[in-house]
Structure formats: C-alpha cells, structure tokens
Write a protein that binds this DNA or RNA. Sequence first.
DNA 1: ACAGTCACTGAACATGCGTTTAGTATACTG
DNA 2: CAGTATACTAAACGCATGTTCAGTGACTGT
Lengths: 213, 213
Amino acid sequence: MEDLEGLTAEARIRRTALALFAEHGYDATTVRAIADAAGVSPALILHHFGSKAGLRKSIDAEVVKTISSFVDDQIPMSGTVDEAFEAPEAGFRELFTNRPELGSYIRRLFFDGDEAGLQILRHFMQISRSLSSTFEERGWVREAPDPEMRDLQLIIIEMGPVLFYPLLAAYFEKPPLTEDVHHRWVASEFDVLMHGLFTAEAPRPDRPEGDAG
Amino acid sequence: MEDLEGLTAEARIRRTALALFAEHGYDATTVRAIADAAGVSPALILHHFGSKAGLRKSIDAEVVKTISSFVDDQIPMSGTVDEAFEAPEAGFRELFTNRPELGSYIRRLFFDGDEAGLQILRHFMQISRSLSSTFEERGWVREAPDPEMRDLQLIIIEMGPVLFYPLLAAYFEKPPLTEDVHHRWVASEFDVLMHGLFTAEAPRPDRPEGDAG
DNA sequence: ACAGTCACTGAACATGCGTTTAGTATACTG
DNA sequence: CAGTATACTAAACGCATGTTCAGTGACTGT
C-alpha cells in the first residue's frame, strides 16, 4: 500500500483502515481486509480498538483533527491578496492531491451527515465566517442578506471537486483535481462570483426578499 | 411502509427496495429485509430479478427514467419568467418532498458516481445547457467563459438540499427541504447570482483567464 | 383432462462476517 | 527472579448474508 515499515502496528492499522474506509466505505471494508493490508492479525485490531466501530470512531476523530488543524494553519486571516485567495486554494488542492484518502474520507463524512462530518462543516463555517467578515470590512465582498447560507454554499462549491470526486471523474473522464479540470472549476466559480449570473435585464420578480414558491 | 395493497408482488418488491436502498444504502439493505417489508419470501425477489445486483440495476434504471421524464415535463424551455424560474424550482421541491426516497436515491447515485448517477447528471446538463442558451439569447444571463462548468456548478448548488440532505438536516436541525430553510437556500443562491460576491474594489489578479496556483 | 408455464415458498447451503477465547512470547516491575 | 502487564496470534463461535433447490398451487392453452 505504501510505506508501512518502521511504524508501530497500531499506527499501521490506523493508516490502513483510513485508506480502506476512504476507498470502499466503512461497511464494505472488513476487519480481515484491514488486518491483511496492515500485516497483522484481525484479533489485534480488536485488541487495540475494542471493535470495528471503535476503530472507526478513532479514525473519524483523527480525520477531524487533521483537517481542522490544516485549515487553521492554511488560512492566514490577514495580509495580501495572494494569501487571502490563492494560498488556501492551492493548499487545499495540494493536500487532497498528496493525501487523496483524506478527501475520500471527508466526502463520506459529509455524505452521510454524521457527527464527524458535522464537526468539520462547523469548523469550515467558522473559518469562512471570519474570512467573509474580514473581506466585508475591507470592502472586497458585498454584505450578504444571509451570511450563513452564503458561506455554506461557498464551502460546498469550493469543495465540489472533493465532494463529488467519483461523479466528476466519470463525467470528465479524469480526476477533478487534475490541474486543468480544477483550474476550470475555480475559474468558472470566480467568474460568477465576480460578475454574477444574471444581467440587469433579467426579470427576477421579488426573489431575494419575497417568498418562495 | 405505505400503500402496498393492490399491487403485484413484483411492484411491491420494487417499491420497497427503492425505499430501503434510499434510506440505508444498497449494502446495508438485505434481501430478507426487502422481502419482509414487501410481504414476500426472499426467494421471490431472486425469482423476479435474478440477483440482488439485478434488482438494483432494475431500480437504478427506473429512477433514471422517472427523474429524467419529470425534468423533461417540468422545464418548459419557453415562455414567461415564472415558468422559467419559479415553476421548476417549486416542482423540484414538491417532487422531493412528496417522494423523499427519490431524493435519497439520487443522492447516493451522485455520491458514488456510477453509471446511473452519471446518466442523470448528463440529462441535467443537457436541460441546463438548453435553458442557459435560451436565457443568454434573451439577454437575461451573461455569456459564460466556460458554459459547461457554470452549468455544472449551478446544478450542484441547485440540488444542494437534496445532495447534502443528511448533513444539512444535522446542521440546521431540521430537514433542508423544509419551506423556510429551502427558501433561505434559494434566496441566498439568487442573491449571489444576481449581484456576484465580490465588489469592484476586490483585487483579484488575473484569475478568470490566468493560470491557477 | 392434461401438460406446461408461472408466481411463489420453506428449508437448506456455503460463505464471510465481527467477535471471543485461550494462549504465547516479550518486556517491564517489584 | 517471580509476577504481571502488554503485544500479538490461531482457531473457533455464532450469526447473517446472498443464493439454490425442490416443491406447491393456480392459471392457461389444447
């Protein structure tokens, strides 16, 4: 699988399980498969983690911690334009390119909405809120009628290539984090964020504050 | 489960399996569970569909057909503003409110990117392309530098409450297709689509056509 | 009336699952 | 040096799974 030498058995189990859960999902990954790939016996996994569910819980926590501290390090919350826009974007792509298991794992956490996924989303929302208000103060972004919703939708679009990785890979016939596809993604996103979608001529009756159908 | 009287056994199996696959996923749904809920023996399911995989294939096809023809009926492709913007939106919400299994099923298809999900996405893209170019001709929307990407991202955002149903339900502590949450979603979306995110003061160096980091 | 198809079932089969148990070797602790 | 905790394994247990098999009853065309 990769460089598993020189690690303790527990670390090897952890690393292997993360990769297999990410690739095939929790249900489809058997304790025996993890044990084989990690070069240990199935019983050792239960010795260290109590149960398969315990292993998952432990790895969920590890992923939440990893991704949260990465985001904290990555988003500078101050400074120049490059730091504000480009660095985090490039950092994200780099992280998920170097460690694709992390992307797949988070995709699954977001998908079924359980506790760990919710924690990550809340952390992202926190960061996003800070960024948004910083930029609003600088006059770089418009103030939102519903800042929470706007941030939420920005996060979802920004993470699109991660959250819809298999679908987009099938659609484009290449991984969506490939440089050219990802560049198209970001460019298109920013085109709309810069100029909007609709023209002034677009008749859009009382939508922004009226009631929905 | 619901009104299963008066249906043939095969139809009952189909309906029950769709609901259970949608709720728990394919792997976590056993043939015996479907049989129990449909009031038949496990063997009958295999008699009609050959295997569990055959049942899935059959239901995948049914869902693709259902959702595609619904979209075809729903999107008018002509006419007034209401028809163009509001009717499809309300129709979508109505469909997924009345038949939540459909939403969950599509969510899973999109998530793991297999054939059926890809077919639905392609159909959506086709419709979206038609709509976009119609509106561009009328001068209601700006021409896109990358129309395919823009349509793709619009679809993802538009379907957000369906595609991230469990996560958003946990985040908001109520289902995202609840009228008020869904209204906030749409209103926020259209706010950005109308006016963009960034102001003219935002320094955004050569992003739209330059190269990405 | 008879042969044949069709919808349908109960019981079993083989397999793979998470987990338990009993045990071994190694290393620390008094 | 005895004693105990720790890392680890082989083997088995009990159970749930998808699937098969042999058979039953009802309808259908001749």
